[in-house]
């Protein structure tokens, strides 16, 4: 196991972090929905290996049923956005039976309009932010695209944190007892006063030397 991963796992002391990020994602979709006056908003995570998008947070239509639901990233508007890395805004997609296709029908709600932006972090596409059915009263403006971008940036940061927490959890899950023991040790040392902590760290360094040889 890479030292970097071990360090990440140990530093995670916050293993409960994963649950902490869900409300953040939820808050982002709720604010996005409110700002755009939209009927629904959602954040999807791109599962590269499965070629699927997974609903992580949903507000409005579908909020009770969609989280965890998977759709193909090979087709449809959200799929295009995830693959192209470009945002897209369309209105009247309800006229488009293939957008509504099984995917949208399965969600039980067929939107008339959709704004979708890719969630990017460094050089990775993490997922897609969707805002569904904003009011038709006005033309879509460049300013709204900027606003969508701001939300997408925020959502990307939150989603990245969630992914890191998941990764650490997986790491701990597959590494067996030793990492858990190290994490436990790190937490306990962290709680010591300064002198005892310094002593404990010296002791650990000695241990590393012994184990290392």
């Amino acid at each position: 196991m890479a030292e970097e991963d071990l360090r990440a796992a140990v530093a995670a002391g916050a293993l409960a972090a994963r649950e902490g990020h869900r409300p953040l994602l939820q808050a982002i979709v709720e604010v996005a929905r409110a700002i755009f006056g939209a009927r629904a908003a959602s954040i999807m995570l791109l599962d590269h290996s499965a070629g699927e998008l997974v609903f992580q947070a949903v507000t409005g239509e579908g909020e009770d049923t969609l989280v965890g639901r998977r759709i193909s990233s090979a087709t449809g508007i959200a799929g295009w956005v995830a693959q192209s890395g470009q945002p897209l805004v369309v209105e009247d997609v309800a006229n488009d039976p293939r957008f509504a296709r099984e995917e949208a029908r399965r969600t039980g709600y067929v939107p008339k309009g959709l704004m979708a932006a890719p969630l990017l972090r460094d050089d990775r596409v993490l997922g897609v932010l969707n805002v569904l059915d904003r009011p038709e009263r006005r033309r879509f403006s460049a300013a709204e695209m900027d606003l969508l971008g701001l939300f997408a940036n925020q959502a990307s940061v939150a989603l990245d944190l969630l992914l890191q927490a998941q990764r650490i959890e997986t790491l701990l899950g597959t590494a067996g007892d030793e990492l858990e023991a190290v994490a436990e040790l790190a937490m306990r040392i962290d709680r010591l006063d300064e002198d005892r902590r310094a002593a404990a760290v010296r002791l650990l360094r000695d241990l590393v030397d012994i184990v290392g040889s």
Partner: peptide, 20 residues
């Protein structure tokens, strides 16, 4: 790039926006 009627799937047209 904003509010353009474009061709879409199944011989429909939609209103779309984006740098594309």
């Amino acid at each position: 790039g904003m509010d353009i009627e474009v061709a879409w799937l199944d011989r429909t047209r939609i209103i779309a926006a984006g740098n594309s």
